[in-house]
Simulated assay, not measured.
Amino acid sequence: MDILYWIIIGIAFAISFIALVYPILPGVLFLAAGFIIYGFAFSFEPFTPFFIIVQVILFISLFIVDYVGNTYAVKKKGGSKAALWGSTIGLIAGPFVIPVAGILIGPFIGAVLAELLFQKKGLKAPVSIGIGTVLAFVGTTLIKVITQAIMIGYFYFQVL
């Protein structure tokens, strides 16, 4: 039975990384689910107050990185709230409309179309904003991969 629990925990952790590419999945919740499954299946004893504080800080940082990264990129490039919403919608829809490449093309197209439709700018500024959103997504995703790997590594360090 222990092997089955470890497989389920591993699947939860894997889904948390898949969610980085398919943002509609609640990746952080799958990460937390892996920890909770371990607690119920084995023991919550390894989860010291320090462990919990560190994990909560890292969980919160995952949300902050997502929000701040995209907002900063759009604002730095002179984009509007429409571009921010367009890139977010493109980020969610892109991977389903265009598998694999949609994760990068979706936010770009969303930001560009939103700026063109709602801000009535020429083509150069919306394209620059679209590129900025893609670069922000790539950067924040890299940070989130590293953060999640640290969280999982720290979890294994505590429990093994």
Rank of each mutant, 00 (worst) to 15 (best):
I7A: 15
I7S: 14
I8R: 08
G10L: 15
A12E: 04
A12S: 12
F13E: 03
F13H: 03
F13T: 03
F17H: 05
I18A: 14
A19R: 01
A19K: 01
L20W: 07
V21G: 13
V21Q: 13
I24Q: 05
L25V: 15
L25G: 11
P26G: 10
V28M: 09
L31A: 04
A33F: 11
A33K: 10
A33D: 09
G34V: 12
G34R: 10
G34M: 11
F35Y: 14
F35W: 15
F35C: 11
I36N: 11
F40N: 11
F42D: 04
F42T: 07
S43N: 12
E45R: 14
P46T: 14
F47N: 15
F47S: 15
P49F: 12
P49N: 14
F51C: 10
I53G: 08
I53M: 11
I53W: 14
V54H: 10
V56K: 12
L58A: 12
L58F: 14
L58N: 08
L62I: 10
F63D: 05
D66V: 08
V68H: 12
G69S: 15
T71P: 13
K76V: 07
G78L: 02
S80F: 01
S80V: 03
S80C: 03
A83L: 01
S87F: 06
T88C: 01
I89D: 00
I89K: 01
G90N: 01
L91D: 00
L91F: 02
G94L: 06
F96Q: 12
V97N: 00
V97F: 03
V97L: 08
V97K: 01
I98K: 06
P99A: 11
P99S: 11
A101L: 14
I103Y: 00
I103M: 07
I105F: 02
G106Y: 01
P107N: 08
F108G: 02
I109N: 00
G110V: 01
A111G: 07
V112E: 00
V112H: 00
A114Y: 03
A114E: 04
E115N: 06
L117E: 02
L117N: 02
K120R: 10
K120P: 02
G122Y: 02
K124E: 13
K124I: 13
K124Y: 11
K124P: 08
A125M: 13
G130N: 02
I131V: 13
I131E: 02
I131G: 01
G132M: 04
T133G: 04
V134I: 05
V134F: 00
L135Q: 09
L135N: 05
L135H: 05
A136M: 09
G139V: 04
L142Y: 08
I143Q: 09
